[in-house]
Design a protein around this nucleic acid. Sequence first.
DNA 1: GTACCTTGTCACTGGTCGGTGACTTGGGAG
DNA 2: CTCCCAAGTCACCGACCAGTGACAAGGTAC
Lengths: 189, 189
Amino acid sequence: MATRRDRFETRATILQSAAELIAAHGVRALGVNVLAEAAGCDKVLIYRYFGGLDGVLEALGAERMLWPRVEIENEGGGASLSEALQSVVLEEWVSMWGDALLLQAAAAELGGNNALGRAVAAQREERHTEIISSLRTTHRVPPYVDLDALLELLSAAVTLFALRTPRTPQAWRRIEKTIGMVARALLES
Amino acid sequence: MATRRDRFETRATILQSAAELIAAHGVRALGVNVLAEAAGCDKVLIYRYFGGLDGVLEALGAERMLWPRVEIENEGGGASLSEALQSVVLEEWVSMWGDALLLQAAAAELGGNNALGRAVAAQREERHTEIISSLRTTHRVPPYVDLDALLELLSAAVTLFALRTPRTPQAWRRIEKTIGMVARALLES
DNA sequence: GTACCTTGTCACTGGTCGGTGACTTGGGAG
DNA sequence: CTCCCAAGTCACCGACCAGTGACAAGGTAC
């Protein structure tokens, strides 16, 4: 530890190092020994302050943004529902692509049971219900459209693309076009 | 080994055990020691016959079905393009949901670099190009629709759902409805 | 028979893992 | 100052890991 004996600071350092290690190498590669070394403290402190690795992941899930926090575009402006939805989904996508921690967190949800994956799922559900209710107050949704399911579908698709597709401008344009195509076809009668 | 000294049979037993272990616990949990014990042979044979774990995964990718092999429905019959596409995507989905090895293989593609993930990606691309060309010969595709991108989008969405959603009848109906909604909106002008 | 090659077994190394108990050090309260 | 508790260090454990070299056993060609 660089500074003096400060429990809160050590705790924060451990969390920060955990976030960096996960962003760099994924949750599965995070171990007590490497984390302690990266944080510059003894591993026994991880057990004392967090009760173990699971506790670190839980704290990370409680304190960090693990799913993109997108803004609903153009409240009251001229954006149509399809444009707003498209913008939300694409913004989720670029946020994940640009943030290694978000990517690894999304991957953590799919790679077995761990505290990080559960936190990711919870955050995503919360954000999505916010988005849906916001969209429903600012736009009229056609009765034959299940907006929740549509958002889930598009979001899931771009999540998987972010996880497995190399990050090229061509891919970007392709996805953008496709999302726009679907949103327009469904929401502009 | 139960039977006599037979290189091919031992090789096949190792591959079979690897498939079962992956289906049960995922690729990351597969090690040389557990695999050798499950196959009932010495681990040195894994090195001799496959050159190591990566070789086992490569052989598995070459010999096994790792992405659903769906049939294009209703050649020449009354199925519309949107019905055919919907059926393809949903069939991919139920196949993955019903086969633990397929699920773990799909997860392997997202969890870092390994031979299994590469094999999965290759198989998926092959199947999808087959599907696209088949659909294009039996149906007329509206010019404003990027059928490749649409299949990728819907397939990615159901893949992620299969990976992270508990397998309930409600979820099934929800997804079925949504996929149908998107396919109809886009492909029935 | 014998010689030889392949298949399979065994024992071992060096390293990393998670986890724990015993210890030292610092800082604040009295 | 002294006392005491929290913060931090150190050494160690048993278990598991991938990988290797030496050896035994079986089958086959001659």
